[in-house]
Amino acid sequence: MRRSIDRGRGKWYLGVTLGFLLFCIGLFLTWLDADGTGIMRTLPNICVGLGAGIFGGSTGIIIRMYLLDKDPQAGKQAEIETNDERNMAIIRRAKAQAFDLMVIVGAASLIVFSLLQVDVYIILILVAAYLSRFGVLIFFINKYQKEM
């Protein structure tokens, strides 16, 4: 049992290591070629951003696991809170509201970008992103209609 828990933890330790390495590589690349051109202009920043994100996220999960191990009662309570049907219903409703709101925000941002006269390919990317949410919505409606 203990082994399987440790094995589950292994991926998060790997995340900490990889995140830290990626972060260091990003800093190293910045130091190596501060006035980089082409891909070297953005690659270090991507490495630093991704590395910091993976490192932070994995560290947070490991700390949480460690704290829950120290206090099993708190762990049980946290599990109850996570699986609580009312909490889950609240989260589902909040997500649905957020989606409805983001449809309006997305449309407004499209208008703003158009008025700012940005390049047409940026507008097209934004339109594709805006429309993709409806594609995903239709996909999940179909999926759940078959399942439920």
Partner: peptide
């Protein structure tokens, strides 16, 4: 605790 839900529920 008996029903495995939160007190708020």
């Amino acid at each position: 605790a008996a029903l495995e839900v939160s007190r708020q529920t």
